[in-house]
């Protein structure tokens, strides 16, 4: 598994660096169609959007692994679900941070109570409860069972967050809608390369974290054997 993780991490890093290079060196600075002015802060989206999509996918994956755990009762699915929530949360924090920088650069304020930011904040608060819940339970099997149920329930908020700006009027830009992508040519290439890079990077992190939980459990079993 270590070799696969290293390869995924390598591919992810190379793609991300290529995406950055392409975004800054090849893709032109976008122009605001309303004002005709160049909007340099648009370059933020090549990283901000892939990070956001990855975090939402991670929360969905956590729910899928949670459901698999409840169905099969195999510990590995609990590890994968926990790892996915952890990474989704970390990526989510990055989304909030980079989103605030976008707000400041584009709108002149650090925070706007608009549908996307607000629903994302609620999503993050919900998942912070996941960690509180897990740490307040002592027994591993109960922790895993409750964790799986929580991950499934919390994931209901993911589509709400994604579709919020499509259903409620918002100043948040919509990149993809029914008419297609809001990017074209080199801008789209830079975005897609970053998107693939972030996905490879994420999978390598998920597998590393999963491996860590496995080793940690093996260690606990051995410690119990020695103690007994």
């Amino acid at each position: 598994m270590k070799k696969a993780i290293t390869i995924l991490l390598g591919i992810g890093s190379v793609l991300l660096l290529t995406g950055i290079a392409y975004a800054f060196l090849v893709a032109p600075i976008a122009v605001d169609p309303n004002t005709g002015k160049e909007v340099f802060h648009q370059k933020i989206l090549y990283f901000h959007v892939p990070v956001a999509e990855t975090s939402l996918v991670s929360f969905i994956l956590a729910a899928v692994f949670g459901a698999l755990f409840l169905y099969k009762r195999e510990r590995k699915y609990d590890f994968l679900s926990l790892a996915a929530v952890e990474l989704g949360f970390m990526y989510g924090l990055l989304v909030e941070m980079t989103g605030m920088m976008w707000d400041k650069a584009a709108w002149g304020v650090w925070w706007q109570w608009e549908p996307r930011l607000t629903t994302y904040l609620i999503l993050m608060l919900m998942y912070s409860g996941y960690f509180v819940m897990r740490s307040s339970i002592g027994e591993d099997s109960t922790k895993a069972r409750f964790g799986a149920v929580y991950a499934i329930i919390a994931a209901v908020n993911v589509p709400l967050t994604f579709f919020a700006i499509r259903l409620i009027p918002s100043i948040h830009p919509i990149l993809f809608d029914s008419s297609g992508a809001g990017l074209e040519g080199p801008l789209l290439v830079a975005f897609l390369v970053s998107m693939f890079g972030m996905t490879f990077f994420y999978v390598s992190l998920l597998l590393t974290r999963y491996q860590m939980f496995g080793v940690s459990e093996e260690l606990d079993i051995l410690k119990n054997q020695i103690g007994g």
Binding site: V39, H41, I44, L94, M97, M101, W102, K104
Partner: peptide, 11 residues
């Protein structure tokens, strides 16, 4: 806008 863009990528 440069500091925000750099901040995002570095961060």
């Amino acid at each position: 806008q440069l500091p925000y863009v750099v901040g995002v990528y570095m961060g």
